[in-house]
């Protein structure tokens, strides 16, 4: 995957000299199975089994794209871009991490599906969809009514008029 990264997103993992400044500043490093500098090391190894382990990891889904790592990286390595690529590859190869698949990835799918059909995100519909996917039926049961009362959850979705155009965009990426 090491070479792919250079070709597809123009990022060369060989530049990483393992200083660990990314992991040191990463807000989620504590919860990750592989911290960002370890991710870089795994890529550098050009070892297929490590590539697979990486694509199956939870870390790539926990990354919140806060961009702290690249903003402090002395070698200016675009780690968030690498993370995006790894997530996309993980899905393309069907190697999604099991526990992330239940929540984080399901949420992403719910979110995108909502846009696919309405052009905008619409919380109630999306959350309902997410609950079905994640089977977390009880989550946020107390929060939703409060939000509803505060007028934060409109009952009907706002929709883009030119939904054909939105569909076109999604169609292109589906194929």
């Amino acid at each position: 995957m090491n070479n792919e990264l250079d070709i597809h997103i123009g990022v060369n993992p060989a530049r990483c000299y393992q200083c660990g400044k990314c992991s040191a500043g990463c807000p989620l490093a504590d919860d990750m199975d592989f911290t960002s500098n370890v991710v870089m090391r795994m890529l550098q190894s050009e070892d297929e089994s490590l590539d697979k382990e990486l694509l199956q990891s939870q870390a790539i889904w926990l990354c919140a794209s806060c961009e702290m790592c690249i903003s402090r990286c002395p070698m200016e390595i675009d780690i968030p871009k690498i993370m995006d690529y790894l997530r996309q590859q993980s899905i393309a190869k069907g190697l999604q991490n099991k526990s992330a698949n239940k929540n984080i990835i399901s949420f992403h799918h719910s979110f995108l599906d909502m846009i696919r059909f309405t052009g905008r995100s619409y919380e109630i519909g999306m959350i309902a969809d997410y609950k079905l996917r994640s089977r977390k039926l009880l989550q946020d049961l107390t929060l939703a009514p409060k939000m509803f009362l505060k007028g934060k959850l409109p009952l009907f979705p706002e929709m883009v008029k030119d939904r054909k155009n939105i569909k076109r965009i999604f169609k292109h990426i589906d194929t």
């Binding site: 997530r87 992403h108 846009i115 883009v160 999604f170 292109h172």
Partner: peptide, 25 residues
């Protein structure tokens, strides 16, 4: 006029072209 969602985190996590096309629109 007739704006759409920018795709947020979900789009760039899942698909690069989508994550660019939505804001581009």
């Amino acid at each position: 006029p007739d704006w759409n969602c920018c795709g947020a985190t979900a789009a760039h996590n899942l698909n690069k072209i989508l994550s660019l096309s939505l804001p581009a629109r």
